[in-house]
Design a binder for these strands. Structure first.
Lengths: 382, 382
DNA sequence: GTCTCTGATGCAATCGATTGCAGATAGAAT
DNA sequence: ATTCTATCTGCAATCGATTGCATCAGAGAC
């Protein structure tokens, strides 16, 4: 509660109220601006006599010299700024990613310009135009669609770009994503281990890599496990939100049901699905088990706490930042495809339980569980 | 699902692969760069013959001309960039505020540089230094403490600054905050109307205006309503998070209890308090009612759905942006104090109920309710 | 003692836009 | 026809840093 106090060098030197420039430092020391410039730049410092470097460092400290970013950018054509495109910062899956990016980029001298696309392509194009006008050095795109001509245009322009959380179908666009396939496999394993045999799914938007990969994984692994994957047990969401989850769940139930669990392509769809159930007077997990994906903030506290797949949002952001930095320095690698897939983790909570009718067929359950590789499981206390 | 396609002007004109400059446009039209500059600037356009303006507009469109931000900034000393300081973007109360800011600033040509302070003063100082080096035109600070010398230093420097969601004690620093006092009053009214007479509180950090104002309002209105406000019924959190809420609740209960409701200074403290209750085997609202503040995302879906005070996060951000823009243009007003207080709204959900022992003393309840002004109430479906 | 070489510093152009001032051109006034 | 305005356009300086090249001084070689 003590007062915060700062003795910052607000306008220390003697250069009026103006911010000190290279020229001021040069004058103070009695050398040329170019000498100061070189002395202050670690790359060129070796060209200057150590004693002079010391004097310059001292004077620049004294005057509170801060390089003028605009002048630097104008001359070097670099802004030390990274553009970050997210669908909507309000969607709580993105802030941790953004922090991962920032915490990695800031210490390296980069600032991030975060903008929201709201999933609208025209907005994305307009935003990219603005970002280019501001001369961003690189781009991190969390709003990528599988076929995304805007991103291809960016890449063609030669700007380092990387997608995060999602991928494009074009393999030449670098990316950092989560292991959707394994995540779905873990979840199916879990449901089957509980005794479920009739599992429906609410798939996400198939124009997004997350939606497509999770759905594909569902089909593949369900078939592998010998489950029935009839099309009547599949609902397609277009928006990855609660309303669409609700709608899809209604649809699935209207088609007759017969399933005991629903694997949803993300947490928000799952939340919507649970709401739809409730409205029908059914309970989760009593009547039907519901699972999510992402492990968004707070889904451990909702009712019921959601069984889901935890993705490493922060680390995905951090990894993307590293990768982008690398590609910005070694510009030779720009063309090379580069993809990182981060491991995920199953988180079992309260929204899944053994199916109602199958009263403890423990033996069969055990068998099926050991037939497939065990998933890495962690249970969070609620 | 159709492929996104863009016919953007990636490198239209004939100027190699370089981005077009004023000079290129000037050459294309056959005029001087200064003429182009004036023709493209709405402020100075009237100086140029309409036909030439038209030709210049056409040529610049043709060449895909985009002004160079660095050159503009260097010359004008303005960056069209606003620095935004938040404690932690991961805390879901801030993203809506940020969107409010961005949605208002972007159409006006401003970009926002969002940075996280993590509530650490040294970080805040360092960040401000970076932001100044980047030459931000203004600052929006969501991480203000009541006594904040860093903000005072900024203001003294002449940079337009405005705090949002919180205020400093210094009235000369403009701000946009929520009506904490009314919010607390609504909530006390609600609890009293339910029949509660013994109400404890978990106050927030008193170094922050939110914590201080909400606590002060609690004291004032509780006394006004004739409630007992003994110090044993007050817990002070230092961090506004779940862990501290839990700790404070433990403390309150350890001191003997005797209360039937706890008014928490924000939603996260409330969530922590509910967890502490559960651990003791008590239920909310069965044994004790708990209330929050802010109406964070998802608190309508937790168990139990939280009764809280809804603040207008997005509109607070938007209002702050408007106010800042105003103060940036009319620099005369910089010294003038200016404060906006946004109305709040009571949201009654499942975490509050009549006290267990007071089995329906409806008459007394009714009386007390009408004795105080009724609050604007909205009930969100869960 | 002169010459060469090397290392340190200075010079000046440059990045792309803005803007005060000067010059030019047109039309109006005489 | 000449002068005077009023518009419009061009000139050139400027913002602050970076960087290729020139210069200069001193050390070392002969």
């Amino acid at each position: 509660m003590a007062e915060k106090d700062v003795a910052g060098p607000q306008s220390p030197g003697g250069v009026g109220n103006r911010r000190a420039t290279l020229k001021d430092v040069a004058q103070a020391v009695g050398v040329h601006v170019s000498t100061v410039s070189r002395a202050l730049n670690p790359e060129t410092r070796h060209l200057i006599t150590p004693q002079i470097v010391e004097k310059i460092a001292e004077a620049s400290r004294q005057l509170g010299y801060q390089p003028n970013t605009a002048a630097y950018s104008l001359r070097t054509n670099r802004t030390r700024t990274i553009g970050v495109l997210v669908p909507d910062i309000t969607n709580s899956i993105f802030p941790p990613i953004i922090r991962g990016l920032e915490d990695t980029l800031t210490p390296r001298g980069y600032a991030t310009l975060v903008v929201n696309t709201d999933g609208q392509f025209e907005r994305e194009v307009a935003i990219l135009e603005t970002l280019f006008a501001r001369g961003v050095d690189g781009l991190v795109i969390a709003s990528a669609e599988r076929e995304d001509s805007a991103i291809r245009a960016v890449a063609a322009r030669g700007t380092p770009v990387i997608t995060v959380n999602r991928r494009t179908d074009d393999p030449s666009i670098a990316s950092v994503i989560n292991d959707e396939t394994e995540g779905v496999r873990y979840m199916l394993n879990h449901l089957v281990a509980l005794g479920h045999r009739n599992i429906a799914t609410i798939a996400g938007n198939q124009a997004l890599s997350t939606g497509q990969r999770r759905y594909e994984a569902f089909l593949r692994h369900a078939v592998e496990m010998g489950l029935d994957v009839s099309p009547t047990r599949v609902g397609f969401a277009s928006t990855f939100n609660e309303a669409d989850g609700e709608r899809c769940m209604e649809e699935l139930m209207a088609r007759g049901g017969g399933f005991t669990a629903v694997l949803c392509a993300n947490d928000r769809l799952a939340i919507g699905a649970i709401m739809a159930l409730r409205r029908r007077g059914l309970s989760c997990p009593g009547d039907i088990s519901i699972t999510g994906f992402n492990d968004m903030a707070m889904v451990d506290r909702i009712d019921p706490p959601l069984t889901t797949v935890r993705i490493q949002q922060y680390r995905v952001g951090a990894a993307a930042a590293e990768l982008l930095l690398e590609r910005m320095t070694k510009r030779s690698e720009i063309g090379k495809p580069q993809h990182i897939v981060m491991p995920v983790e199953l988180v079992v909570r309260g929204s899944t339980a053994p199916p109602a009718q199958t009263s403890g067929n423990a033996a069969a359950t055990r068998d099926l569980k050991t037939a497939t590789r065990p998933a890495k499981v962690s249970v969070r206390s609620v």
